[in-house]
Structure formats: C-alpha cells, structure tokens
Design a protein around this nucleic acid. Sequence first.
DNA 1: ATGTGC
Length: 381
Amino acid sequence: MGNFPEAGAVARIRLFASSNAWIEGAATRQLDQLAGRPDMLAVAGMPDLHPGHHAPVGSAALARGRVFPDVIGTDIGCGMQFWSLDLPERRLKLDKAVERMAVLEGAWEGNAAALLDEHGLPLDFAASLGTVGGGNHFCELQAVEEIFDPATAAQAGVVAGGLSLLVHSGSRGLGPAVLAHHHVDGTGGLPLEGAGMDYLADHDLALRFARLNRQVIAGRALQALRTEGEERIDNPHNLAERQGDLVLHRKGAAPSDRGLVPIPGSRGSVTYLVEPLPAPPDALASLAHGAGRKHDRASMLGGKRQVASNLDRLTRNPYGGHVICTDRQLLLEEAPEAYKDVTKVVADLEAEGLVRVVAILRPVLTFKTARMKREQGRVKR
DNA sequence: ATGTGC
C-alpha cells in the first residue's frame, strides 16, 4: 500500500464518484465519521455509496492494528458468486424454469450438517445452508446482452447465447451471531492483538459459510434448471482482510484484486461484468458492489413513490424476464426505482480508471422469495 | 442483514 498518514493524523478520504452519482449528505458524513475512527489510515467511497447502520455501504477503510466489527456489520461474508451454465439460452423453457426455481424457498434436501462438518464449519445454522435469505439477496439466471471483450468474457464462461447464474447471499444466521458474540459499544473497534484476532477467526468462519452457502444455492438452481455449470467468480463484499498489522474493511465494496467482478443493478436492470484495472493505492483494492440504494426501504413503503398500484410490473423486468417474489413488502422495498442507475455507477468507475467493462448480462429469472407471509396484502401506508 | 416478535 502507498504512503498513508501515521496514527493520530486524519485518515485520507477519497470518493470515487462524479457529480452524476446520487450520494446523500448522510452517506458522506458517515464516510467522514469512518475516517475519524482511531488508527484509521485511509477511507475510500465508491459511486454506490449510501447510508448504512454504522458505516456507509460502498466503502473501504484501512486501519492499523485495529478491527471494527460494527463496520462489517451483521452479514459477514455476503457477496456475489457467478456461475456459467451448460444450458444455452435457446434451450431454456422459461415457464418451466419459473416453476422449478421456487424450490429454493424450502430447506436444502442435502445433508447440510455433513457438508459443514466436512468444511470445519459450525452446525448451528445448518438449516439455512443453501437458502437465499431476505433483503437484497437473490439468485438470478442471466443471459448475455452484450460482450465487449470476448477473450476476457470467456474466462468467466460468458459466451454469446449462453446463460449464467448470479447468486447474492451471505452467512445467514452465522454472521449476526458472530457480530453479537464480539459486540463492542461505540466506534473504537477491537485491538488486533487479542480480541480483534478472536473476532477475525470467527469472521473467517462466516466468510467460508457464506461462500459455501452460495455454492449450495447455485447447485440447487442448476438442478432445478436440469443443467450443469461451473463456479467462475466468488466475490465477497462485506469482510475484513488482515494484511500484516493492517486491516482492510470492506462494507459493500467489491475486492478488485481477485479477477473479474460482477456488478449488478436492481432486479430490473442489467449486471456489468468488469475487469479491474491497476488502481491507485487510495482505491483500497475496492470497487462498487452494485448500484447502491437511492431510497431507503421505509420510504419505498409509503406509497409516495407510486409503485403500489403497479405491483404486477415488479414481478417482471423490462427484458421480458420474471422475478419470483411473493412478498409484497419486499417487492416494494426492492423496486428498481429504489436503486441508483448501475450504468452511471459503472461509468464512474470507468472514468476513475478503476475498471473496464467486459460484458453486460440481462436478467432472465430472478428468485427472491416464494414464501406466503401471513400479513400478505397488508402494506403499511 | 437476522431460525426475520414478546
């Protein structure tokens, strides 16, 4: 890493976003507060920056000798996993796929406890291994919209007429349990020597659980689609990474040092497959992890955004694809207009010299949830 | 985000 200020000095703050980026004052204030934490050396904001609980989502923060569990938050290890499928788009029967993909709602039929045991992972949350979860999580079948660099795209198995799968999920119950176990009041974090290392050990288990969870989800989706495929990319965006006595925190920031990165927008928009470029040290080896929220969940439920009368639209996408989501409230919270324009977010990353676009993928079938909630039909307004 | 309420 480059020359960062010494401990006690003000951390360097760098925002990788143009005036086109929709960045709230609350988010930049959170970025300032993050920079003001003890032993913080540098902080980077990405164009998807938006307010989070204890730190802004879309940020990276480098500290010396200290880790801040509350910055990583509850969903430790949450990230994107990208698979290429053997099934060509022309052979997909969409109606059948919509029907069969709903299997993801139930528990995995495999032996979760045995698999976790094999991986040396705790069994406490075996029941949710292989399930997507809530919030912004999804499992999405995607088709190729455009390829800009065929040779690089082929590295991720992206070829014209092909299909891919993008899984966005995390460590389910394990991440929140780890955070609760190592909870610290205030913004001081944990010293790396001692309590900080204990946190990181448990954090690493959640990181591995999250990746395995995405693999099981993908395996179930492939089975539902009666095809096979290959895991090409796994890119976690909520994690702490120890580098000697430094700790790099990523809160909704995609690592740029692990190959190609999928950057999804909303469930009504395309996903960009990008190649990270050699970046200045103050980018903290990070990229935007998605479009980022434009409006918080609560404001999407107020009826002010004129989406309530148009719920049917939200279970389809502008590309003729389907969204499986039987939860009305989640459908409103996750409406495309709740998100920034991913095209602008990626344009900012390009303008900052951080990435090159390799391909654009379009949503064909998105699984969110097939569960029928009891309060179904009762949306607060 | 969350075995998603007490």
